[in-house]
Amino acid sequence: MSISIQSIHKTFGAYTALDDISLEVPDGSLTALLGPSGSGKTTLLRIVAGLEMADPGSGRILFHGNDVSEVPAGKRGVGFVFQHYALFTHMTIAQNIAFGLDVMPHARRLKRAEIRERVSELLHLVRLDGLDKRRPHELSGGQRQRVALARALAIRPKVLLLDEPFGALDAQVRKELRRWLRQFHDEINLTTLFVTHDQEEALELADQVVVMRNARIEQTGTPQDIYDEPRTSFVYEFLGEVNKLPDGRYIRPHEIELRFAAEEGVDVTGRVSHLFVAGPFARVSVAPEHGRRGELEVWASRDQVEEMALASGDVIGLHFPPLKKLKS
């Protein structure tokens, strides 16, 4: 089911959280809302869920063409996963997952046995078989996150909304869970919108990335587009390491080519101030000569650095590919 967000405004007192936001989330896609804190991404997600109301008269939220702006959160059919899981601590895992089914109106409520059946299906789906009688505090962070997901899926939501789903996990678990979520999404194929401030996460996971900043959308596109063709300097700087040249142009560390100073096609010469080799990669910091301020960061292969017999203090040449100028 597609989500259509049409010119949404949201203010908190004098503070503008969302400024005329419009966005299409295609059916079955996995879309990331990416931005620094305060960019409005979580507010937008909460408005889609119905946990927050857009400013009166501002715009509409459509699910599959139907206006849901006035539909309360509990009736929108959204699955919402909270950053800190928000599992009910006084209930078992099974009771947590069954909650949405238990509180349905009598007429629509499943029979007890059917609920039990569904809960064990979901536990299997999120690979937590056999943990139904445990309590949330007995589970690891990654397991709790999957319980939260199972609980959200139990009500067969039309869309899945995830607020910083991996924000509270440590680096290793984050990576595993990220891959798992991608596979999982491909299996169930549910329209999913998730919020993150981690560019790597957004680029690796999403079909569509929406970069937000200061209550506005900066750029929308595939991860490839966003990384290769940033439209603003903010997007450039936010998506990974980048060198800003004095004339306002940008260049990523891996785009700079190392050459000997006397070689042809050298745009800048400089002195190697720091050299760090790890595995097959090398990070080279170069302080440009001729009065340029600031250092340039270059990523090269270990082979090349060894071939050139590079050492700290050497003078070296840098070659830039053709560069574009960006609006700030």
Binding site: G50, L51, E52, M53, P56, E70, P72, A73, G74
Partner: peptide, 8 residues
């Protein structure tokens, strides 16, 4: 009319 937030 706008409905109230989910938690009041």
């Amino acid at each position: 009319m706008h409905h109230r937030p989910a938690t009041t």
